[in-house]
Design a protein around this nucleic acid. Structure first.
Lengths: 327, 327
DNA sequence: TTGTATGCGTTATCAC
DNA sequence: GTGATAACGCATACAA
């Protein structure tokens, strides 16, 4: 079933059908004839033929580190909402945190001729940049701020600074930190920097023994909290770079009958459903993940329609004060 | 840049380039010439032109109710893993639990724009069936068992039966139930049936006042637990059809200083990360969501390659005994 | 083993 | 407003 069949059934030429499909000039009479035939046959034009002719795929490639994560789910939800409102579909590249796969998908999307790529990034290597550099289609990076490319990202430095400030304000003096690798500029470097700068500006010493770096996982939080507590005395707060890390830290503290927050306060960056359910409820920085999806989608759609605004968007945050930090 | 350009640069015809790309007969000499040109130019063939010619898209359409859900995330992760291993990409239809959108996506995918469709379903209406019936491409349904179509689904009746049996075995006699609409055959009808049949077979009365039906949400769990407790005496267990409902029920009980599980036991179908972190840790039925994704992907790939095995796969489950049910 | 010719389903150009 | 016709980039039957 193609437009020629429809044309025959409606008694017009295929050009007229094509015009009908693309809102061109068609007489009322033919318009209704064609509509009837299309309704009866359930005809849907081939998007691939259309693409071949017009060079437009109406497809957005989305590359992401881990689809089965609450955070990423929200981002994709935002992207999906915005793109589908504009008649675009998204094609998914789930990389399972595997850099080789990320590179592979960047390549595939050149091949698949998508109209644009949204890259939800963690660690960006030179290899990434090499490929991104000679990408011939628009790309928007989410979650990282990469020089020279349109990005949608969060206020990592500022939020970590504010969270630390809040801890200090609440009387904490020996604030430890569990973070992630600095190769991740946003979640690693910037959050740690915010923490350190805030200590400095408040005349608190930066103690290397109070800073631990591990994975993004709950296990890492558990393990590093254990090391912190066993090797130091008088720690009054643990600031975690992600909520999963905080969950692990809390698990260790609870197991060892260390009361949260009376003995030690715990908090993290990145809110989640679980943070508000766990006991004690976790004080966090809430990021607007869904919004980052929406904004990145808007941006890529703008770029595709050649409104070349290569702007960056830095999203805000909220301090969610709950029960895991001493009041 | 197309195969004609490559052909000219390599000094051969475009057919030879095409054959080279598709592992046909090409002399060693031409082979290396073409390879060199392709390497130099970074040429990537147009998948859309290829599709137009071959009718193969190497795309799987995935329709799902809510991408930002832990459960669905796992399913997609499984699908993605399996399809990408076979050179397929997935194109996402996120419907936000909106039936109109589901229908819309089924339409979009229907006419050959993808090679196959994986439909992660909740409520299936006659309208769905009408469209699915004259779908011209393979479809696999996940999460529901629909007669006449290949399905991957969970043992809802059996798991609900077993969970109820477990409650009875642990001495509970007045077991209440919070479920969802029976329009959802799997999560609604079958789980409720498993619960009821088990009561019957153990000589316990089915009391309509002990059965509440609501949404899939935590709020529903809260609201219905409240109604159960306020209007009945002596309830010793609340069996919830989903973990979100259980979370809400637990919230209500905790707020009212009803001890779990000492006063009332709580359990649910569908495990989650949160179930193992909340206090008390929630006793659940664990489903293999990621596996359902993997199996459905395998199935659709088999169907696409015409190994027409229209089999159903009913997945198993595990009872995760934790702390929310009296031992 | 290679090249020529044709068609996949659509849109765009042009003359009517 | 309409219809014939030529692309779009590729795979393939057939001839060489």
């Amino acid at each position: 079933m193609n437009i020629i069949d429809i044309a025959k059934l409606a008694g017009v030429s295929k050009s007229t059908v094509s015009r009908f499909l693309n809102n061109g000039y068609v007489s009322e009479e033919n318009r209704s004839k064609i509509q009837t035939v299309i309704d009866e046959t359930g005809f849907i034009p081939s998007s691939h033929a259309k693409t071949l002719r017009t060079k437009k795929t109406n497809l957005i490639g989305v590359i992401l580190p881990k689809i089965s994560s609450e955070t990423i789910g929200k981002v994709v939800s935002g992207i999906s909402e915005e793109t589908s409102n504009s008649g675009y579909n998204i094609i998914l590249g789930n990389t399972d945190l595997n850099i080789e796969k990320e590179i592979e998908y960047l390549q595939i999307f050149k091949n698949k001729n998508v109209d644009g790529v949204i890259f939800v990034a963690t660690i960006i290597t030179k290899k990434h940049l090499d490929i991104i550099k000679d990408m011939k289609i628009p790309i928007v990076i989410v979650g990282q701020n990469v020089d020279g490319y349109p990005c949608v990202y969060h206020s990592d430095y500022e939020s970590a600074y504010d969270m630390t400030k809040y801890l200090i304000k609440k009387g904490h003096r020996k604030i430890s930190y569990i973070g992630v690798t600095k190769d991740d500029i946003s979640a690693g470097l910037n959050r740690e920097l915010g923490y350190k700068d805030c200590l400095k500006n408040n005349n608190l010493k930066i103690n290397k023994n109070l800073i631990k770096i591990g994975e993004f996982s709950q296990e890492s939080g558990y393990k590093n909290a254990k090391e912190l507590i066993e090797n130091n005395k008088g720690i009054d707060a643990i600031f975690c770079a992600t909520y999963n890390i905080a969950l692990g830290a809390m698990e260790y503290l609870k197991e060892n009958n260390i009361n949260i927050p009376y003995d030690i306060s715990v908090c993290s960056i990145g809110d989640s459903k679980i943070s508000n359910i766990i006991s004690p409820r976790l004080t966090t920085i809430n990021y607007h993940y869904e919004q980052s999806g929406v904004e990145s989608a808007k941006m890529i759609l703008d770029m595709i329609s050649a409104k070349n605004n290569i702007n960056n968007i830095k999203l805000g945050y909220e301090l969610k004060i709950r029960e895991s930090v001493k009041l």
